[in-house]
Design a protein around this nucleic acid. Structure first.
Lengths: 193, 193
DNA sequence: GGACAAATAGACAGACTTGTCTATCTATTC
DNA sequence: GAATAGATAGACAAGTCTGTCTATTTGTCC
């Protein structure tokens, strides 16, 4: 089971990094919690940074899968889906998101905060994830027939990031509802053509 | 000049922490760049955490002073000031904010990202700063005669945090204009009573 | 000039960091 | 059953981290 150990390491690292931060959690913590020898880790990942990037990639994959599934299960109407986005965020803030469940802010916001250099692979992973999110919203806005789906997607990303930051920093888990109310007002003003 | 060294240490720490992160910058870096002996630092601050908190407090003070001054110098009309907020953010993202000038995201978002525990004094400082920002916006909304100034302030904080996060993570310095367009639309929909 | 407070350089402790290495063990496959 | 690949524990290197300590020098006020 060569992929088994690797998978387990990524999951363990993801959980620890999310809970305590990338710098704060050392390699020794990861292998201890994973119950794995140090050489096993360094056999699968050349450096800690590589493990961090693998963890972020898994997070992006898993989160987007969960997120889009929740949005699409709620309603078929594209316009409604644009609003449902914020209900799904509320679920996430309340600890009903994908593993790991405890809400400690957006892992990608946190990664960008710890690795300021845009050239750092962890920062680049955050960049890619946010573009992915915006692209998804843009697809919803296109399906809803909006004149300028790019503008809607740009607004939505600002609202999503803002709600997530407020929920984390202020511990206000209903920040998603604040953002939803703003989003609803914006949708009414920017009616589909 | 007993306060001189202390001030200089706080400024140096603020600059380094903002540029590279709180965990990534060690005490030795701070004292080397400040040109100060280690015991001078530990004479003024009992621990590194105390230095971090002092740096964040100075940042909050200096940033809010700059921010409110820029908003209020632009226009006297409270409604217009609510929109000017985003022009001032754009200045900040473009490196025309208070010292230290280089934009590396919001120091308080970054602090909350590195210190997840809400009980940690650095996280608490971030919390206080955001409440201060929201309180200021609320004052503007009150002066503009809005029915529910608290709701406007909540929306604005989400837009501000979101624009700042997008500007930092995606390097999109015009995120403030995206937020401003959304804010203008919201203001039109939520006219003063 | 003498006294007192503050700052200095630098050694030091003890713990922690990433990453390497070795020598042993285990499991699968031929 | 033998060979091969992967995992194991743990020592180890070389450096970093925070925080303490000492012994000396500097600057200011009387």
């Amino acid at each position: 089971m060569p992929a088994g150990k690797r998978d387990h390491l990524i999951d363990t690292a993801l959980r620890l990094f999310a809970a305590e931060g990338f710098h704060a959690v050392g390699i020794d913590r990861v292998i201890a919690e994973a119950g794995v020898a140090k050489m096993t880790l360094y056999n699968h990942f050349r450096t800690k940074d590589e493990l961090i990037v693998a963890a972020l990639e898994r997070r992006a994959e898993r989160f987007l899968a969960w997120f889009t599934h929740r949005v699409e299960a709620a309603t078929e109407d594209p316009r409604q889906r644009l609003l449902t986005v914020f209900d799904v965020l509320a679920e996430w803030y309340r600890g009903r998101g994908p593993e790991p469940r405890r809400f400690t802010g957006c892992a990608f916001q946190n990664a960008a905060a710890e690795f300021h250099d845009p050239a750092h692979p962890a920062h680049a992973a955050a960049n890619a994830m946010k573009r992915g999110t915006r692209g998804y919203v843009r697809g919803l806005a296109e399906a809803a027939g909006f004149d300028d789906p790019g503008a809607v997607a740009a607004w939505w990303l600002v609202l999503i990031e803002g709600a997530t930051a407020v929920a984390h920093q202020l511990g206000e888990r209903d920040a998603a509802l604040t953002a939803k109310a703003a989003a609803a007002t914006l949708l009414d003003a920017q009616a589909p053509s």
